[in-house]
Design a protein around this nucleic acid. Sequence first.
RNA 1: CGGGGCGUAGCGUAGCCCGGUUAUCGCGCCUGCUUUGGGAGCAGGAGGUCGCAAGUUCGAAUCUUGCCGCCCCGACCA
Length: 491
Amino acid sequence: MSKEITSRQQDYSQWYNDLIIKGSLADYSAVRGCMVIKPYGFALWEHMRDQLDKMFKETGHVNAYFPLFIPKSFLSREAAHVEGFAKECAVVTHYRLMNDPDGHGIVVDPEAKLEEELIVRPTSETIIWNTYKDWIKSYRDLPLLINQWANIVRWEMRTRLFLRTTEFLWQEGHTAHATAQEAVAETEQMLKVYADFVENWMAVPVIRGVKTESERFAGAVNTYCIEAMMQDGKALQAGTSHFLGQNFARAFDVKFSDKENNLEYVWATSWGVSTRLIGALVMAHSDDEGLILPPRIAPVQVVIVPIFKGDAQKAQIDVKALELVQLFRNAGIRIKYDDSDNARPGWKFAEYEMKGVPVRIAIGLRDIESSSAEIARRDTREKMTWPMEGLVGRVIKLLDEVQQAMFDKAKSFRDAHIVKVNTWEEFENILDGEGGFISAHWDGTAETEEAIKTKTKATIRCIPLHNPAEEGKCILTGKASLQRVLFARAY
RNA sequence: CGGGGCGUAGCGUAGCCCGGUUAUCGCGCCUGCUUUGGGAGCAGGAGGUCGCAAGUUCGAAUCUUGCCGCCCCGACCA
């Protein structure tokens, strides 16, 4: 990679970190690779979580909770899973501390060594399937449709706020089914739920597809994914849904008696999205003035900033502002009236722009006199003066417009950066230039995929669902290919 | 673990190459007055183990050596 590209990446990283820290979403913590999610950032996560949870329940799932610690032996039960997850895990080896006999402080008590180490879950398939063994006996116990909201730990070497932290929050669904068809249908259904959420709530367009064998989840038969494009043209995997076949059922001996009284292994799925989605949100929408949050999940959808000189004016504005607040609240809008006197209007304007609040209403004396208000939308930075009469209804409509406009903007950016490429030269030029997704022919082998990755850092993001058949020649080897796949550099 | 950068007040920094009064500036903080429609102005004030340790020197933020920590890039990965 050229020096220019490296420095562009650094600038983009810096931009991304600043947005998150100045936008009050999160901060670095004292613990390596972990972050502190601040109240504002957590409120954002809560809105995302609540909506996802609702969608899971609408599709028949229930929530449960499983242990944080996984006995080491569980992780060696499923062969392919071992390969993928044997590394980069936090391991608990002792269960007691003691005062340092040589001086001050605390040391690990060497006497308190665990017989079997415990692994802090990097994902919960093993501990959950070990539990399902006891829960599933008959076809009447199926399907078992369970989701868990949890924190997990993966000791990644390099971390990045929200995108790849050592500890992160996520949900993981783990389902068991009587037939392969039913499990595949579940896998596809959950991919649809994710795509629906990310597009309609986060206003981030996604490509639905399946992973190639080498990008597949450890232990899965097939991995479905949604891929989003960031403003630097790189790809970000926004969610995955795995068809696990009978791999975990065999590894953990989960069998059921079917209607004909035959003993069968169950079919499994698992699917998850994480706080990484917040990173996707930031990188897909924000600008140099700060975050831009889509109205449907913004912690604060509308902020009212009063502009006044002295207490008498403030009292006058308060009446009107508090009336509006009540009307917005009644309409279910998350609204904040910032009448704090320790910051001046200009400061507040900049502050809420940094935090990505979709719509700002400013009310000063001149607005009271003309019975109007100044409306500013964050995504386009437009300012309008609207009459007080019917303002609430109009602002609510504006929130919907902003939601749609954000999606449309992200989608046209993305579509403009998906390029069909037929030569290797063009392939490299695009990656080192504009970036984006490259639709190109591939000979279908893992060797070629690996070779392309080594040469360019680009990976096959997915084979899009309903991909049209098209004969062509592999971009690297020139061998025969039956379809195009999507390549990109990814986070 | 490799490559690059950095460590000076709560935050961001200048000074370092070429050692020399009381360590620079901005933000923030405190007091007062004036301000408030795009991150306020003026006046006054408080705030420092210059990452740690050793060395060179009459004298070290500055030079030397060692250590610690952080950030970015790569390998890893969602």
